[in-house]
C-alpha cells in the first residue's frame, strides 16, 4: 500500500560515449495506492528501464521517483530501503534461484531485511501460500521443480518482503496456458489480500484487458497512452500503429465493423463483444 509518483524521469545509457542512447524521456505519472496497472509497449520501448527506476536499481539521469512522497534517490540508505517497499520480479525470475532449499530461497529477501527468525518463517509460509507452493516442497531443491513451480517460488521470494508495490516484468512469459492462469491468479490474490499496488508488464493484451484498471503504453521512451483499458482499447488503430496488438475481442469487433455491422462502444472483452452483438441483433 504505497503510492508512487514519477517526475520528469529521463534515463540516458552510456552518456558521453558514442553508444549514448536515451531510453526514457521526460516521463511524469502518478500511480495511487492499490491500483492495478498494466505496462504495454514493444521491445525496446523503455518499459524495462522505467521499472528498474522504481526501486532505485537504476539512477535517473534527471528527474525524480517518489514512493509515499519520499524521493528514493536521496542517498544510499533510501536507495536500499526502497527495495523493501517496491518488489521487482524480473523476467524469467526462476533463473535467479540459488539456495539449497525452496524455503531458504524464499527467505533470502526477508533475511536481507534483517528480520527475526520467526518473522521470516511466517513470511515465507505466507508468501508460499499466496503463490500456491505447498509446504511439502520447502525442503526440496528449487532446481528440481517444474518450470511453473520454479517461477512461483521466485515470485514468492519477492512477495515475502511484503512490498507495498509489486512490479512484475512479463510474469507469464514461456509458461503453458495453465501455468499462466495460475500465476495471474496468484498475483490477483496477493493484491486483494494485501491491498498492494501492482504493476505488470505484459504483451498479452487479453490478460491486460481482463485484469488491470489502468494501462500505460510506452513508445520510444515516452508515454504514448495512459488510461483505463476502455479508453486505451477504444483507439485500437493507434496501438496497432505502435506495433502492439489488441485483445481478440477488439480485433474481431474491428473486423465486423469493417463489414458494416454497427457495433457500439469500446469492446475489449468477450462479454462486451457478446453484448454488443446482441444489441444489433446478430445473436
Amino acid at each position: 500500500m504505497s503510492d508512487l509518483r514519477v517526475e520528469a524521469l529521463t534515463h540516458v545509457y552510456s552518456a558521453g560515449t558514442p553508444f549514448e542512447k536515451t531510453a526514457i524521456q521526460d516521463i511524469s505519472l502518478q500511480i495511487p495506492s492499490g491500483q492495478f496497472v498494466g505496462l504495454l509497449g514493444h521491445t525496446g520501448s523503455g518499459k524495462s528501464t522505467f521499472i528498474q527506476h522504481l526501486n532505485a536499481l537504476l539512477k535517473p539521469t534527471s528527474g525524480k521517483v517518489l514512493v509515499d512522497g519520499e524521493d528514493i534517490n536521496q542517498d544510499k540508505k533510501t536507495r536500499r530501503a526502497v527495495k523493501n517497499k517496491v518488489g521487482l520480479v524480473f523476467q524469467y525470475p526462476e533463473y535467479q534461484l540459488f539456495e539449497e532449499t525452496v524455503f531458504a530461497d524464499i527467505a533470502f529477501g526477508p533475511k536481507n531485511m534483517g528480520l527475526g527468525k520467526e518473522e521470516i518463517e511466517q513470511r515465507v509460509r505466507e508468501a508460499a501460500h499466496f503463490v500456491g507452493v505447498e509446504e511439502e516442497l520447502f525442503q526440496r531443491s528449487p532446481l528440481e521443480l517444474s518450470g511453473g513451480q520454479k517461477r512461483r517460488v521466485a515470485i514468492a521470494g519477492v512477495i515475502a518482503m511484503r512490498p507495498g508495490i509489486l512490479i512484475l516484468d512479463e510474469p507469464t512469459a514461456g509458461l503453458d496456458p495453465a501455468g499462466c492462469r495460475q500465476i495471474l491468479d496468484n498475483i490477483c490474490t496477493y493484491r486483494r489480500e494485501s491491498g498492494a499496488t501492482v504493476i505488470i508488464v505484459s504483451h498479452n493484451m487479453d490478460d491486460a484487458a481482463r485484469l488491470t484498471e489502468r494501462l500505460i503504453v510506452f513508445n520510444h521512451g515516452t508515454v504514448a497512452m495512459d488510461g483505463s483499458p476502455e479508453q486505451v482499447f477504444s483507439r485500437p488503430e493507434e496501438l496497432i500503429k505502435i506495433g502492439l496488438s489488441v485483445p481478440q475481442a477488439t480485433s474481431l469487433a474491428m473486423a465486423l465493423r469493417e463489414k458494416g455491422i454497427p457495433l457500439q462502444g469500446s469492446i475489449y472483452t468477450h462479454a462486451q463483444l457478446m453484448a454488443a452483438l446482441k444489441e444489433v441483433g446478430v445473436c
Partner: peptide, 12 residues
C-alpha cells in the same frame, strides 16, 4: 541481470 535481480531482493 542476475545481480540486479538479487539486488532487488535486498542483496548487498
Amino acid at each position: 541481470k542476475i545481480m540486479s535481480a538479487q539486488k532487488a531482493r535486498g542483496a548487498d
